[in-house]
Write a protein that binds this DNA or RNA. Structure first.
Length: 652
RNA sequence: GCGCCCGUAGCUCAGCUGGAUAGAGCAACCGCCUUCUAAGCGGUAGGUCAGUGGUUCGAAUCCACUCGGGCGCACCA
């Protein structure tokens, strides 16, 4: 049992007279916010004060008298307005740590009630290369899967790829009209990506050309509104100012829209080849949509192209996943659910949930103005339909009792409607959760793009990270009198540092917030970064290397842990909190709570390393004890990082 | 117009199911390498937690309003 749970069960006895309120009161036992207050603190006395009609300090004192923790803690202290401060006995901490020697799990036992959780993440469109926009879902989703598994849950990771949408019509159209067969044979996916981009660009061109007059008119209209508004300035200056500010904002964004439209046109028109293509394919957008429709309708030649393209696209995705070290149990894309869509709408209609509105089949959820469209007026199904079919499959076939959707927060309304619809549809016996996250921004607070304005491809992102991590590795090893790494080892370490840096930078933010992408911070060797934690791990390995002792030998030695100084004590307590960190991560699926534990652990190790010599420990026993601590810390760091999908190297 | 999210140190962020003087990392300044990797350690400085009002014994945290920023909102996924 974890330290915290042990304490809580003792308090439960002492608080028995408060009946139903006890669980809530036990929640108020927390890790102390400051070490000088002990290890844990209980904060319930103040909130009980009013109900009981006694001063909080008296309540705290009474509870302490009834509390039996003498085998665990020093005498509890009542402090301040009525806090109860608890400090574990060194002997207890030492004994607990001694009992987990050699355990990669640091004594964390599997959950008693495992759930089957499907984690839906990454989910790129296969027609275009993966880019930075897919990074967060992929990294966060993978970390959640690993952590759930570690905790003992059954996990099915599912890559719900976009392999059936409009983008395939574009590729098919592009292939039929613009393919360069030599390029296609040499590198099919690159050529398909070019075709996608080209068709998209030409469609965009025509759409923009048609839209530009409206955009200009809108801008003009806003400018006129502003002139008209000016006349009201004296009537109510405050109100005027506010309206004026808002108008100015609207005008700015309208102007931006016009400018970007003009740029879109200019790019095509300034290029002879592109503009002749545009002229030759005036209805390209509709024709591409037609290709999609034909594919969906079962057209043999389009199906044949799809069958040809898809494996190549999947292979290209796999390259990225391999480099990131990410695996899926299932890759069931939209196409997989296609045959199931009609029955989704049918059963929704049978239950009276879906009804016709403007020719589309919609589910209306109370409290939402927007409908949940499950079939468009042209008969086509939407991603809402697919998502419902997916839920049905996951419960009925996979027997899942929980689904996590690791998808960015702009889609929260969609998921709210989806979950409500699913519950009404009969899927109210399972848990749905939108694990949402913010946008990756650049230093100016804009979504992260390349200098040219394109989204950043994941492949080049990883390459760039390696370009930056390699010199760090080289420099470190070059400083040594005797080099420890050869060229290929250095390359391997650089890759571990690079990929770890990318993942850690993402995971160490609370997933809800937008986060600023910053190469320098991501691969910094100091501070709260993957490299620093990986380095702490390597330093520990260095101790064993230097002393010529193997870690497994120490782990098997049955030696005991001694606590002789605050640094050792802090390390022991930290090791015993690992379980708590895992629980916290899984409570709301927040991996940053694990990065916090990792950083805290490596930080405490650095202090220990600085002040407590292993080699020159006063006694043999203490030396053994410190070796055990080092080994356990290394295990904790390695296991913790592995739950985030981050690797370690013994030598850096 | 409707809805969701955000505003904490110079910068990037924690803390938000209310609890003791608001934390960390970078950056800045001052110290520490004959000693297991200085990618380290010790110290200093830095904040009316956007603002106003409310609830409470107690508010960065809950509620209301204001200001500032972002994102969604009927047939793209």
């Amino acid at each position: 049992m974890s330290l915290l749970n042990e304490l809580r069960s003792r308090f439960a006895t002492a608080l028995a007279e408060y009946g139903d309120e006890v669980p809530g009161l036990l929640e108020m036992i927390r890790v102390a916010q400051d070490p000088k207050f002990g290890d844990f603190q209980a904060n319930f006395a103040m909130s009980l004060s009013k109900k009981v009609g006694k001063p909080p300090r008296d309540i705290a004192t009474t509870v302490c008298q009834k509390l039996d923790v003498s085998d665990l803690c020093e005498t509890p202290e009542v402090a301040g307005p009525g806090f109860i401060n608890l400090r574990f006995r060194d002997s207890l901490l030492a004994a607990r740590v001694s009992s987990i020697v050699g355990d990669d799990r640091l004594g964390v036992s599997p959950v008693k009630h495992p759930r089957h959780v499907v984690v839906d993440f990454s989910s790129p469109n296969v027609a275009k290369p993966m880019h930075v926009g897919h990074l967060r879902s992929t990294v966060i989703g993978d970390a959640i899967c690993r952590t759930l598994r570690f905790a003992g849950h059954q996990v099915t990771s599912d890559n719900h790829i976009g392999d059936w949408g409009t983008q395939f019509g574009m590729i098919i159209y592009g292939y039929r009209n613009f393919v360069n067969m030599d390029a296609y044979r040499a590198a099919p996916v690159a050529e398909l990506a070019r075709l996608y981009k080209l068709v998209n660009q030409l469609s965009d061109y025509h759409a923009t050309k048609a839209k530009l007059p409206q955009l200009k008119a809108a801008l003009e209209g806003l400018n006129q509104q502003r002139v008209a508004l000016k006349a009201t300035e004296n009537a109510d200056p405050k109100k005027y100012q506010k309206a004026e500010n808002q108008l100015v904002k609207q005008i700015d964004s309208a102007r931006e829209a016009v400018e970007s439209a003009e740029k879109t046109l200019a790019v095509v028109e300034s290029d002879e080849h592109l503009s002749s293509l545009a002229a030759a394919h005036p209805t390209i957008a509709r024709l591409a949509r037609d290709e999609t429709a034909r594919l969906h309708a079962g057209d043999a030649s389009n199906q044949a192209l799809w069958d040809e393209f898809l494996p190549e696209c999947l292979k290209a995705l796999q390259v990225i996943y391999d480099r990131l070290g990410i695996q899926f149990d299932l890759t069931l894309g939209e196409s997989f659910y296609n045959p199931m869509l009609p029955s989704v709408v049918e059963t929704l209609a049978e239950k009276g949930l879906a009804r016709s509105s403007d020719g589309a089949q919609c589910v209306f959820i109370e409290g939402n103005t927007a409908p949940f469209i499950v079939q468009k007026s042209d008969g086509a199904y939407t991603y809402a339909t697919t998502d419902l079919a997916t839920i049905r499959y996951r419960r009925d076939e996979l027997k899942a009792n929980e689904i996590l959707y690791v998808v960015d927060n702009r889609q929260s309304e969609h998921f709210q409607l989806l979950f409500s619809t699913a519950a009404l549809w009969g899927y109210d016996d399972m848990t749905f959760r939108h694990v949402s996250f913010g946008t990756v921004m650049d230093r100016n607070g804009k979504p992260y793009k390349t200098r040219a304005g394109d989204t950043v491809g994941l492949e080049s992102l990883i390459d760039e990270a390696i370009n930056r991590s390699r010199p760090i590795v080289n420099e470190n090893d070059d400083r040594r009198e005797v080099k420890l790494l050869n060229d290929s080892e250095r390359a391997a370490v650089a890759e571990i540092v690079a990929v770890g840096g990318i993942k850690y930078a993402d995971l160490h933010h609370n997933r809800d917030s937008d986060y600023v992408f910053d190469w320098d911070k991501m691969l910094a060797t100091t501070g709260d970064t993957a490299a620093a934690i990986q380095y702490a791990y390597a330093r520990i390995c260095g101790i064993f290397r230097k002393l010529q002792i193997s870690r497994s030998e120490i782990a098997d030695s049955h030696a005991h842990v001694l606590i002789t100084c605050p640094e050792e004590r802090a390390l022991c307590l930290q090791l015993l909190q690992f379980e708590f960190a895992i629980e916290n991560v899984l409570y709301e699926y927040r991996p940053h709570l694990l990065t916090a534990w990792l950083y805290e652990t490596s930080d405490r190790f650095s202090k220990f390393y600085d002040r407590c010599s292993v080699q020159d420990a006063e006694t043999d026993e203490l030396r053994q004890s410190r070796l055990i601590l080092c080994d356990l810390i290394a295990r904790g760091l390695k296991t913790g990082l592995s739950l985030l999908g981050i690797e370690t190297a013994d030598v850096m």
